[in-house]
Design a protein around this nucleic acid. Structure first.
Length: 425
RNA sequence: GGAGGGGUGGCUGAGCGGUUGAAAGCGACGGUCUUGAAAAUCGUUGUAGGGGCAACUCUACCGUGAGUUCGAAUCUCACCCCCUCCGCCA
């Protein structure tokens, strides 16, 4: 969320930011209406405060008169009128604040100046590449074909039990899933990230705090009674750990890593990635989350991305890092690097991690602040997160990159102690 | 699910419907004292919004929301959360 005052005072900067994002159309109320509502809001607020002041002063006087057994009937009648007027203004204000609040909640973050301007994913910019693409002396298969032969993933029965976009992991497939969780958590914690295992059902406030609500409710699974939301990423519960809190400067930066299942409706992606493990309603992910001081957040983003890349390097999976352009970046992010792993079965790179700096966008929504030593007042922290990594897609990458001509799959060196096996066969 | 108790400032904990933004204690910070520290002692110590160049000033906030009242931390209702006991249960 952007600050109302910031919007009031930086209307042109905001307009150009929205344009770069391709967000310039489709608002319920536009910026100029917002501005006039704000003007009205400030005017009414001042009037109400003035009247409250009057009420406070006179009420005190009434108390004094009554104590002295004097008549205060005139004042009481007068104050009744004042109170009625305050109530009237408050109601109008509430209506206005509902509109302006919703408007602010629906404005995306302003991209950082270093973010390439572009309309969609075709204009993302490759930053670097790592790893040699393996040369196959046979036609590499898709992971779903490999998995079927090895009988380690059962898509049909996943569909029977739950529906499309669900899978059953079996045997060494299930073991691989578990091995990856442990491998990633161990690696991340060895770098100073504290391990967190949070709730995976959360309330509306948490979803609003990180930016999934109110705008993206169609992407979420929800329970009805009582109402909970299934998290689409550990970012939600982990970032909300400090919702509404004021941290001390010396607590920052905070590094957390969390394994959780993730749940996504994938509404609007019909027909995309219908086969295989790439796009599931339920998937496992290990997440990296940081809370930092504002001046550190961009160097922390680089470090966070390095940490995510390191996982792929240790697994020997070739990848590239792209900077998302303004048109492809997520709603809450100020800057995002995607890490895309090479999938020989599909002959293309696929996103396996997304590392973002949200600056104070989430912190403002979730009201996460910190206090500097010896300074008055508080500031919003900066929040960052990135996958470290998406486990299902890592399974895909391992199956496709490490497949052998005979249909078996070599287990990456770093994973063998976790797998208790060298080969999946 | 049933019965009961409770949610107040960084923490502990008072608080008759009327100078209570909130006693007291602890902690923290600053001063005095001390060679230094401790002890003692004095003082300071919430957040947010509005107005003003500023000193400053006004407003709101005692779980959340609504209500009663000239006036609510204090009364009423609903909801949320926590604790204890019972039941059920991985």
């Amino acid at each position: 969320m952007l600050d109302a005052r910031f919007v009031r005072e930086n209307i042109d900067a905001l307009k150009s930011a929205l344009q770069k994002r391709g967000y310039d159309r489709g608002y319920d109320i536009d910026l100029s209406e917002f501005l006039s509502l704000e003007e009205e809001r400030l005017r009414l607020m001042r009037e109400a405060e003035e009247m409250r002041n009057k009420r406070n002063v006179v009420s005190e006087e009434i108390g004094r008169l009554k104590k002295q057994k004097q008549d205060a009937e005139n004042l009481i009648v007068e104050m009744k009128g004042v109170s009625d007027r305050i109530k009237e203004i408050d109601e109008t204000l509430k209506g206005i604040e509902e509109k302006t609040g919703l408007f602010l909640l629906n404005i995306p973050n302003i991209p950082h100046e270093s973010v390439p301007v572009g309309k969609d994913e075709t204009e993302n910019v490759e930053i670097r590449k790592w790893g040699e693409l393996r040369v196959f002396d046979f036609e590499p298969l898709n992971h779903w074909d490999i998995a079927e032969t090895l009988d380690i993933i059962d898509f049909e029965r996943g569909a029977k039990i739950a529906g499309a976009r669900f899978a059953v992991m079996k045997g060494l497939g299930a073991r691989l899933e578990r091995a990856l969780m442990n491998f990633m958590l161990d690696l991340n914690t060895s770098k100073g990230y504290k391990e967190i295992f949070p709730p995976i059902l959360v309330n509306r406030e948490s979803m609003t705090g990180t930016g999934q609500l109110p705008k993206f409710s169609e992407d979420l699974f929800r329970t009805v009674d009582p109402e909970f939301y299934l998290i689409p990423t550990a970012e939600v519960p982990v970032t909300n750990i400090y919702r509404g809190e004021i941290l001390r400067e010396d607590q920052l930066p905070i590094y957390y890593t969390a394994y959780t299942p993730c749940f996504r409706r994938e509404a609007g992606s019909y027909g995309k990635d219908v086969r295989g493990l790439i796009r599931q309603h339920q998937f496992n992910k290990v997440e990296l989350v940081k809370f930092t001081k504002p001046e550190d957040s961009y160097s922390e983003l680089e470090k966070l991305t390095d940490d995510a890349e390191d996982i792929l390097q240790k697994l020997g999976l070739p990848y590239r890092v792209v900077a998302l352009c303004t048109g492809d970046m997520g709603f809450s992010s100020a800057k995002t690097y995607d890490i895309e792993v090479w999938l020989p079965g599909q002959q293309r790179h696929r996103e396996i991690s997304s590392c973002s700096n949200f600056e104070d966008f989430q912190a403002r929504r979730a009201n996460i602040r910190f206090k500097r030593e010896g300074k008055k007042g508080t500031e919003f922290v900066h929040t960052l997160n990135g996958s470290g990594l998406a486990i299902g897609r890592t399974v895909v990458a391992i199956l496709e990159n490490y497949q052998q001509k005979d249909g078996t799959v070599t287990v990456p060196e770093a994973l063998r102690q976790y797998m208790g096996a060298d080969i999946i066969k």
